[in-house]
């Protein structure tokens, strides 16, 4: 459906597959679930090394084989990070309900963003009367979008979060050069 995997397992076996991960507007639940692969992480680390990721503290994504994106696109910073990943990763994977379909953050899409900000920052006691406008702050998009509405995405792993087993199956298929396949009971949207 979307593009074929471009990394060739035989060739890259000599060097480790470079993987970057990040969370845009997400809850890091998908990252926690990634850790649920438990001791299999030792197998993974044999063939994989991490670039930018919450587990490396590398700030910017360099050239990578695989990028895993959690979370949806909610603000301008998300857009910049997502573009950086798309520019640097051969294969980009949306993982988790938010990245795949907008998820929980997108449930604000029926609200006017001005009304929402005013209600939070102006209409409540003790918080002042101004919507924060520091240029350091990323601006919110009027609607929250799944990542494939902003950049081209190669693969999708649904789930909130996808289970450790689901992630493991998908990533090992990919690394082995198979077309990744998820079916019952690994394929879940909730």
């Amino acid at each position: 459906m979307d593009t074929q995997v471009s990394s060739q397992p035989q060739k890259v076996a000599k060097r480790k597959i470079r993987v970057a991960t990040t969370s845009l507007s997400g809850c890091f639940g998908c990252h926690m679930s990634l850790l649920d692969i438990d001791e299999r992480i030792l197998q993974l680390i044999e063939v994989v090394e991490f670039d930018r990721s919450p587990i490396t503290d590398i700030k910017h994504c360099g050239p990578c084989d695989i990028g895993l994106i959690e979370g949806s696109v909610c603000n301008s910073e998300n857009v910049h990070v997502l573009r950086e990943f798309r520019d640097n990763c051969n294969v980009l994977i949306a993982f988790g309900a938010c990245a795949v379909a907008g998820g929980l953050p997108a449930q604000r899409n029926h609200l006017d963003i001005g009304d929402a900000l005013r209600e939070v920052y102006c209409d409540r006691t003790g918080l002042g009367k101004q919507i924060p406008n520091d240029r350091e702050l990323p601006l919110l998009l009027d609607k929250v979008h799944p990542i494939n509405e902003v950049v081209r995405v190669d693969y999708f792993i649904p789930g909130c979060p996808p289970s450790g087993d689901t992630i493991w199956k998908f990533v090992t298929d990919l690394i082995a050069g198979h077309m990744p396949r998820l079916e019952h009971p690994l394929l879940k949207f909730d």
């Binding site: 459906m1 949306a94 309900a97 795949v100 379909a101 907008g102 998820g103 929980l104 997108a106 449930q107 899409n109 799944p146 494939n148 693969y155 999708f156 792993i157 649904p158 909130c160 396949r181 998820l182 079916e183 019952h184 394929l187 879940k188 949207f189 909730d190």
Partner: peptide, 27 residues
Amino acid sequence: NHFCPGCEKSGNCKLQAVAYDLEMLNP
């Protein structure tokens, strides 16, 4: 707006079940 993680029908929903069966990975 088929936000399965926030829907009480999840797991009992026919739309979702058919999507699972047909291995729909994203919208």
